[in-house]
Design a protein around this nucleic acid. Structure first.
Length: 503
RNA sequence: CGGGGUAUAGCGUAGUCCGGUUAACGCGCCUGCUUUGGGAGCAGGAGAUCGGGAGUUCAAAUCUCUCUACCCCGACCA
C-alpha cells in the first residue's frame, strides 16, 4: 500500500512540476519561479546581485524610455555623476548618513597582487588614504557639484536626472524587489524657492502615478510618508504605494522635498535678484527596477506573468501549426503580409518557429506574459481566419483575416485597461476602513490595507509595527481625519493613514 | 551578526547511518527519424576529479579533522 501511495505522490509531483506553485499558498516561491522561468533574471555570483536577462531588461528599457520622455517634456535633462563618493561626503548630512551608513559598500584598496598561496590577494600597499563609498544614492556627490555650478538665481532651477546603478548592501535580497545593486533613475533638482521645490516634488509624483497606472497598469495610492518612513535627509517624502497579489504593500516610487538640508550640508547658496544670499532648495526622486517586481506581483497568475501591452517586449506571439513542409510554406506566405502590416502599426510581433509542440509554446509564452497569441494552421488558412488568445482572460476568438489588424489593436488596448481594472478591483476589495484595533489586527493578519485614524505619534506607529508588523505606508492625499480617532490609542486622529505589511 | 541546515552532472535528487563492482534516477542538453490545434514519441549520445584541503584505511561520495560557500529563521531597506 505504502509504495502505491508513494508512486502516486511522485506522479502528482512530476505532473505539478511543469506548473507553478499555488500562488495563494506559496506566493514567495511562485514569484521566484516566475522570474526564473519567464527568463527575466538570474542570480549573480556575488550574493544579492542580479543578472537582468534580455527579456527582463526589455521591460526596464520600456519603462526607462517612457519615463525619460515624460521628464524631458517637463524640462529635465540627463547627466551622469560618479559611482564613487568620498566617505566624508556621506557624513555631511546627519540624517542622511544615519540612514545609509549600515548598507554602504566601501572601497579601501586599489590593487590586487599575485600570491603564491592564495592565488590573488588585496595588495596591502594600495590602501587608500580616504576610503571611497560606492553610491547608495547620489545626493552628496551631486550637491558637491551644485555648489560649484550655482551662484546666482539665474543658474536656477537645475533639473537634472541620471539613470544609474546604486549599491545598498542588503541582508535579505529578492530578485528585482531588493538586490544589493539595482538600476534606477534619480532626479536631483535645485530651486530658488521652497514653493518651487514643493511643486517639483509633487509634479514628479504625478508623473510616477501616471507611469504606474497608465503604463504598468498598477493602481497606486499617492500620499506622504510619516517621519519615521521618510527618506533620510528629506523634509518630506511623497510616494506611490501599490498592493501586490498577496495583499502586501510595495513602495513603487518616492519623491522627496529635501528642503535646504543638502544646501546647508554642502554650503550651496545663490544670490537673489535683490542681491541677497540664500540657501538653495532641493528635491530628489527615484524609481527603480523594483517596478518590474511590482508588475510581476500585481498581474501574475497561476500560469505565470501577465504583461501590460504597453511594456511587453513582445505584444503578439505567433504560433504556426504545421504538419509538414508544404504546410510550413502555406502558413509562411499567409502570415508574411499580415506581419508586415502589424509591424507597420508599431506592434511588437514575434513568430515562434521552433520545433516544440504547440501546447508547449502556449505554456511557454503564457509564462512569459505575452498579452496576445495568434495561432495559425491549415484549418485557418482554408477559412481565411486566425485564432487569437488573450493572456489576461484566456479567451480564444476566431477572427477573419481582414479584421485581424483592427482586432489586435483593440484587444491590446482592452488588455491594458483590463489589467488595470482587475488590479484596481483587487486593491479596493482588500482595502478596509476600520475604527477599532481588533478589526485592524484581523485584517493585517489576513492581508490587506487598512485605512484608519492615527494620533500622529511616532510611538504609536512603532508599537503597531512591533505588534502587527504593519507600517504606515502613507498619509493619502485624500485623507479625511475629521471625526476619526486613533485606531491604537483612541485619541483624536491627526491623520487618516494607510497601514499594511510591506515588501 | 546570533540560531538551524545543506553541499553528489546545467537543475532536482538517490546512495552516506553499516567504507568494497564501471556512482544511479528524473528533468534538461546533443544527434537522427517520426511528430505538431494545450507541456510529443522512439533510438542513440555527451556530461560528475561526489564543495576545497588534510587524515584513517589494502580500499573513502561514505569515517575523522579543517576550511569555504550557499540556504532557512530573527534585527535594516527602494
Amino acid at each position: 500500500m505504502l509504495p502505491v501511495i508513494l508512486t502516486l505522490i511522485l506522479r502528482v509531483y512530476y505532473f505539478m512540476s511543469k506548473g507553478l506553485p499555488d500562488l495563494n499558498k506559496d506566493f514567495s516561491s511562485w514569484y521566484t519561479q516566475v522570474v526564473n522561468r519567464a527568463g527575466l533574471a538570474d542570480y549573480g555570483p556575488v550574493k544579492g546581485t542580479m543578472v537582468i536577462k534580455p527579456y527582463g531588461f526589455q521591460l526596464w528599457e520600456n519603462i526607462r524610455e517612457t519615463f525619460d520622455s515624460m521628464i524631458k517634456k517637463t524640462g529635465h535633462v540627463n547627466a551622469y555623476f560618479p559611482l564613487f563618493i568620498p566617505k566624508s561626503f556621506l557624513a555631511r548630512e546627519a540624517q542622511h548618513v544615519e540612514g545609509f551608513a549600515k548598507e554602504c559598500a566601501v572601497v579601501t584598496h586599489t590593487r590586487l597582487k599575485a600570491d603564491p598561496r592564495e592565488g590573488i590577494i588585496v595588495d596591502p600597499d594600495s590602501k587608500l588614504e580616504e576610503e571611497i563609498v560606492v553610491r547608495p544614492t547620489s545626493e552628496t556627490v551631486i550637491w558637491s557639484m551644485y555648489k560649484k555650478w550655482i551662484q546666482s538665481y539665474r543658474d536656477l532651477p537645475i533639473l537634472i536626472n541620471q539613470w544609474a546603478n546604486v549599491v545598498r548592501w542588503e541582508m535579505r535580497t529578492r530578485l528585482f524587489l531588493r538586490t544589493s545593486e539595482f538600476l534606477w533613475q534619480e532626479g536631483h533638482t535645485a530651486h530658488a524657492t521652497a514653493e518651487e521645490a514643493e511643486k517639483e516634488t509633487l509634479d514628479i509624483l504625478e508623473l510616477y502615478r501616471q507611469l504606474s497606472e497608465d503604463f504598468l497598469a498598477i493602481p497606486v495610492y499617492t500620499g506622504v510618508k510619516t517621519d519615521s518612513e521618510k527618506f533620510a535627509g528629506a523634509d518630506k517624502t511623497y510616494c506611490i504605494e501599490a498592493m501586490m497579489g498577496d495583499k502586501r504593500a510595495l513602495q513603487a516610487g518616492t519623491s522627496h522635498n529635501l528642503g535646504q538640508n543638502f544646501a546647508k550640508a554642502f554650503e550651496v547658496t545663490f544670490q537673489t535678484q535683490d542681491n541677497k544670499e540664500e540657501l538653495v532648495w532641493a528635491t530628489s526622486w527615484g524609481i527603480s527596477t523594483r517596478l518590474i517586481g511590482a508588475v510581476i506581483l500585481t498581474h501574475g497568475d497561476e500560469k505565470g506573468l501577465r504583461l501590460p501591452p504597453k511594456i511587453a517586449p513582445i505584444q503578439l506571439v505567433v504560433i504556426p501549426i504545421i504538419k509538414n513542409k508544404d504546410q510550413e510554406e502555406e502558413v509562411k506566405s499567409f502570415l508574411e503580409p499580415l506581419i508586415v502590416q502589424l509591424q507597420d502599426l508599431g506592434i511588437r510581433v514575434h513568430q515562434d518557429w521552433t520545433n516544440n509542440s504547440p501546447g508547449f509554446k502556449y505554456n511557454e509564452w503564457e509564462m512569459k506574459g505575452v498579452p496576445l497569441r495568434m495561432e495559425i494552421g491549415p484549418r485557418d488558412i482554408v477559412k481565411d481566419q486566425v485564432v487569437l488568445a488573450r493572456r489576461d482572460t484566456g479567451d480564444k476568438l476566431i477572427v477573419p483575416k481582414e479584421e485581424v489588424k483592427d482586432q489586435i489593436v483593440g484587444l491590446l488596448q482592452d488588455i491594458q485597461s483590463g489589467l488595470f481594472e482587475q488590479a484596481l478591483e483587487f486593491r479596493d476589495q482588500n482595502t478596509h476602513s476600520v475604527n477599532d484595533y481588533d478589526s485592524f489586527k484581523k485584517i493585517i493578519k489576513k492581508g490587506g490595507f487598512v485605512r484608519c485614524g492615527w494620533d500622529g505619534e511616532q510611538a504609536t506607529e512603532a508599537k503597531v509595527k512591533e505588534q502587527t508588523a504593519a507600517t504606515i505606508r502613507c498619509i493619502p492625499f485624500d485623507e479625511n481625519p475629521n471625526g476619526l480617532s486613533c485606531v491604537f490609542t483612541g485619541k483624536p486622529a491627526k491623520h487618516e493613514v494607510i497601514f499594511a505589511k510591506a515588501y
